[in-house]
């Protein structure tokens, strides 16, 4: 019996719905709604290379946002003074290959694949990432505790990003 068999298809449907909702908010840049998805204490991290999850705080990341940094980041996007995000690149993303790694009490760990295509200056770029969400069940829904986005080539040459993964 593998772990997945103990995870109900209803749960997978609910989690998938949540991740797709989040992806939709990010593509539509509805950042206030995105911030409201968070439980508050956790981190939004884009690591570099294969730093283990437990060592991210002591490593250089592309971003390591606590609640305040997430809010500052969104404020920067929204204030209109950042030339790279006024206007930002447009994005269309898909989230797929969703795996529930752990479901214990009100805690879930969910892995997924994310593909983002961005467009700016008539130029399109493609990004792919392995994403881990640590979710908490709240009032029949979910909140994001931590989100770790591991870009392919995160330790290689990237470009700058005017949006979130």
């Amino acid at each position: 019996m593998n772990d997945m068999s103990r995870i109900s298809s209803t749960l997978l449907t609910d989690v998938t719905g949540f991740l797709w909702h989040e992806a939709d908010l990010l593509d539509r840049k509805d950042y206030d709604a995105w911030l409201a998805l968070w439980s508050g204490k956790g981190h939004y991290v884009l690591p570099i290379g294969d730093t283990p999850d437990a060592e991210l705080a002591d490593a250089l990341n592309l971003c390591y946002d606590n609640d305040k940094m997430r809010r500052d980041r969104i404020a920067r996007f929204q204030a209109g003074f950042s030339i790279s995000s006024a206007p930002p690149a447009e994005t269309i993303r898909t989230v797929s290959r969703i795996v529930i790694d752990l479901a214990e009490g009100d805690r879930l760990t969910v892995r997924s694949a994310e593909h983002v295509i961005e467009d700016k200056f008539g130029r399109q770029r493609v990004w792919a990432a392995n994403v881990t969400h640590r979710l908490v069940r709240v009032d029949g829904g979910f909140r994001i505790q931590d989100k770790i986005v591991r870009l392919l080539n995160s330790d290689g040459m990237l470009n700058s990003f005017s949006y979130l993964f």
Binding site: L46, A57, D58, A59, L60, N61, L62, C63, Y64, M69, D72, R73, R76, S82, I83, S84, S85, L158, N159, S160, F161, S162
Partner: peptide
């Protein structure tokens, strides 16, 4: 060192609050 890392991430790199505007 953690403080230095967070300061670096704040401004620098592909997701910093500074570098993307420089790059633009």
């Amino acid at each position: 060192n953690r403080a230095r890392l967070r300061l670096h991430e704040h401004f620098q790199g592909p997701m910093g609050f500074g570098s993307p505007d420089d790059a633009e």
